[in-house]
Amino acid sequence: MNEEKHVISMLVDNKPGVLSRIVGLFSGRGFNIESLCVAETMDPHTSSITIVTMANLPIVEQIEKQLNKLVNVIKLRDLTGPKSVKREMALICVKAKTENRAEILSIVDIFRCKVVDVGPEHYIIEVTGDEGKLSALLNLLKPLGIKKIARTGVIAQLREPK
């Protein structure tokens, strides 16, 4: 069966060990995590967790049921697909030789990113966007030489009814 990317978003108790329960469930059952984001919500007693995982449908169903079963998981939603807005941020350090600097800046401009650090040999670019935007940007920058990259992983939110 086809593996697909799934975005699972959870509201959980903001307590020690909760993340470890969630991650342990993935590792203990051989499920894979592609990215993971955790932060407090407006209510300091709860956190929100967004996990991206690659799996086929029955496995995703099983993952979601297992997560839901954890006592500290208050609410779970599969946010895969267009029903949600997804964003990820990356900090990309690219080699910036004199002859490439203009090209890089024009890419930055087109993608509406920001240069947040400059040196004689590099730029660090801050970019926010969905998966498509990030991978398009990376494809353009790759030939110029990416030195380092740090990504936050996906966060997502359900769109409100129009």
């Binding site: 020690p16 060990g17 470890s20 329960r21 469930l25 203990g28 006592v71």
Partner: peptide
């Protein structure tokens, strides 16, 4: 012990 038994308890507490 909470860490050790996390995968084999329904729930646990420190």
């Amino acid at each position: 012990i909470v860490g050790i038994t996390r995968p084999c308890t329904k729930h646990n507490y420190l």
